[in-house]
Amino acid sequence: MALARDRCICLRKFEYSETSQILTLFGREHGLLRVMAKGAHRRTKAGASKFDGGVDLLDLGQAVFTFDTARELQTLTEWHLLEGHLELRRDLRSIYLALYAAELVSVLLEAHDPHRELFDRMEHTLGALATPRREEVFLAFELELFRETGYLPELNACVSCGQVINGLPAGGFSPSRSGVICRNCEAVVHDRISLDPRLLRLLQSLLRLPRQQGATQRLPQLTRHQTDPLNRLLATYIQHTLGRRLRLPDYVIPPVQAGTLAR
């Protein structure tokens, strides 16, 4: 079987046995892949290993693997670690944001569907999550991921009547209708989440920012007072859309009282 080579990020790992792992990798040229790394933890006495001692979550590496789209599980034959994100591991918030990014990518992408720009964006984001600008970096990545995978909700016009919201205060956000609703339509939409107009304008402006080499340019500095409600809104929306509960939002987004989801 033909061997493929790709730059990959490890999104999930499962310790299959004492020495072997099953991994979900995000490859730049191959998209999502599930691979079996047989003997991943095995080393010679001198420390040599075909897998650099085993693959860890969020590791970036050069992978060599069998590639057959007809098979659900490929075989990883080689892994060379390029970046292990040691800086990220020094802060719990950074770890949880990075794992949330990995969870979102693993559920929003289809297997074997490459997204090169998104890969570059994720590689850049994982590095930047270790910096004090992690909150805005994560939010910008989340929006980019939604846009790239076609899950970006409508944020500029009412999803009920089509009226442009830009400049006008919104009546709220509807997860079931995937977007904002105007004041006139708020009474007929029952799953409405209130949304501060300033936060909506912030989301709209983030989506308009120029992008270059895997990063959003001129990203404004944001506080958690701004990003927490937006992350909560987007998490509620994407969980509703996917019809499944994600695990990391509970770690990343502080709980709030009922009825104030995005205030």
Partner: peptide
């Protein structure tokens, strides 16, 4: 172990 085999 050996330095040449250690990962980064």
């Amino acid at each position: 172990s050996s330095i040449e085999y250690a990962n980064r």
